[in-house]
Amino acid sequence: MDEGFIPYQQSLEDEEQSIKSTQSVIEQAIAWFRAHSMFVLAYGTGCGAIEMPPTFTSRYDIERLGVVGVATPRQADILIVSGYCSPKTLKRVIRSYEQMSEPKYIIGLGSCTINGGMYWDSYNTIKKLDDFLPVDMYVNGCMPRPEALIEGFVKLQEKIRANSSEAGYIQYRTRYAHYRANQERLFGTQVQPRYEENFAGMNL
């Protein structure tokens, strides 16, 4: 991976275009519905959260895109991590993410989720959210405007419609050992139940 965020983001966006054409009609329909109905768990971890209320209310009215805020992770499709994460917060963020049903996506809001932003030398915030959770879409800036967040949603919609196997939740499942290792380095082992241990077999 090259230095910097922009080339990385570019590479993510390029990939989508190529995959889209290989889907069946039903898959495309499903993807369309998923893309046009996004239930958001807006986790106000840091100051970026201040930009979310305007996004959701009359001024910017993101409900036009089918984006609705929900209260519980069980119902959410998208987790917005809005700003810097202290380990204490991250613990809850991870737990919330793990309780979401697949498919699920993460939007990292603000520079802090990318490289720590203005907290780059803080002893008590994580620098790179992607080490712990698979971020699907970054919205950079400090802070990013609601327009930027909407842009992020639109981009995410495209990504969802592409239905990539590179989607964050699939990565989290397949590369769990990596994420878990990073998490354990931060929290130790006793805190969080292991993700795969939460579920006893599929299908009732």
Binding site: F33, S37, E63, P103
Partner: peptide, 20 residues
Amino acid sequence: RFGPSLAQSFSDSIKLFVKE
């Protein structure tokens, strides 16, 4: 506001049905 499309709730329910 403008609000979502008329079929939004329907889309929501379909999406939920097709969650993995």
